[in-house]
Nucleic acid binder design. Sequence first.
RNA 1: CGAGAUAUAGCGCAGUUGGUAGCGCGCCACGUUCGGGACGUGGAGGCCGGGCGUUCGAGUCGCCCUAUCUCGACCA
Length: 493
Amino acid sequence: MAKEIKELTPRNENYAQWYNDLVIKADLAENSAVRGCMVIKPYGYAIWEKIQKQLDEMFKETGHVNAYFPLFIPKSFMSKEADHVEGFAKECAVVTHYRLKNDPEGKGVIVDPEAKLEEELIIRPTSETIIWNTYRGWIQSYRDLPILINQWANVVRWEMRTRLFLRTAEFLWQEGHTAHATQEEAVAETMRMLNVYADFAEQYMAIPVIKGIKTPSERFAGALDTYCIEALMQDGKALQAGTSHFLGQNFAKAFDVQYLDKEGKREYVWSTSWGVSTRLMGALIMSHSDDNGLVLPPKLAPYPVVIIPIFKDENGLAAIGEKVEEIAKELKAQGIVFKYDSTDNKKPGWKFAEYELKGVPVRLALGARDLENGTIEVARRDTLAKETVSIENIGVYVKNLLDDIQQNIYRKALEFRTAQTVTADTYDEFKERIEEGGFILAHWDGTPETEALIKDETKATIRCIPLYGEKVAGTDMITGKPSPQRVLFARAY
RNA sequence: CGAGAUAUAGCGCAGUUGGUAGCGCGCCACGUUCGGGACGUGGAGGCCGGGCGUUCGAGUCGCCCUAUCUCGACCA
């Protein structure tokens, strides 16, 4: 068994394999019988629920409400926005029939050829089209605006190659779709939600992100501008962790959504959409995990604390159980969720390893020796440090420790990213450095040709044009043409 | 969709020049253990991914499928 843990090495040559193993061994998810899809297991789903709950709260605070729109999209809807269909056409699952029947030759069931749909249905790869078709009926005047709606849903994109959490054929996400009277309002909304995502990533997931804007080639199909948060994984590859799109009037025009303004003039509505997905869990796993398994930030751990009793027999367990009840009261008083693993079919050492693999931030171990001394052993997952402390005020102690762990995990990730972010002034320097992974800040002349050339030759893409940080003009490292600021390059997932 | 690899017990694997299948972990029972993945004894568990062929005989050889993984291509 010990061997299994040693196989997990975040910086080994086969990071992809390590990642897969960790996801499976930490009991988060597994491949399903359906190509490219995954089963999210209870422990993994509990993390997703924490993410959902927190984001939902942040959406509500910024004035949004939840609603739900259909899974199926009539094929004709997809063709109404030209860029949108071009972007998604290659990865759509299509429903063509609505009935099965017994095979007349007795070979199980077949699709009933007489049950062919007149118009095929697309399983949503994203919901802009069905939502904007609906919004048309909801919007008549400026008094109906803005519409600030979010949807929690699953979507399907038939990707050629998939990876657990990072790119599955079906995934869970939230998609916000807002409608506004003016361009300014819509742009402000796009930025507002980008900031919500960045705050969530940094404060809850403990992942530092760079806020920026995508180049036209990386833009969402149908958007005028795509803003994003970009994170750096431990193997040096970048991961797009969330996007917020300014859609202009594209979808309003495609679905004829107009409103009457105060002067009685008809205008097209302005819109945004924004989303994050179960991919965030991939980011979480790859950002913090180490050779012992997952490392979860306390704010997103299904249970931030696990209590492990060390006992010889039933009497011993009962004595510890009484003490645990006292501790439980203190933890509850601090609002800390914990798990007490009193099962007697696993030894303490096994449990220690198991909860480390699962990334539980704090482990409390309690045995006869502690009962005698009035102490408890406290172990933290981020540093693997252990200490024996007095059981007095353990609730407050753990609360402070959890806060410290949350900050420490973020600080570690930030230090890593800072160390892995460099500038390159010449293309040779760039090509050499890109092999080591990490972010590279370099000057770009703003043309798609240069961008494509770099991608072809180095597999690096422009992750974003950073919104913040110092903006010093320079010249493109290849063409020598002027560049207003450095842009962020990396190889990406 | 290209290249490579893999498919044998719940999981991880072995299986020689073809002779009707084994190991470790896990699981079940009992006992001893219990402060970093315990140990002993005894058990249960397999249409060897599917199909066709060669052969007296196929986990093993040949061909064809299918699925998975890694690397590409692709990827709001």
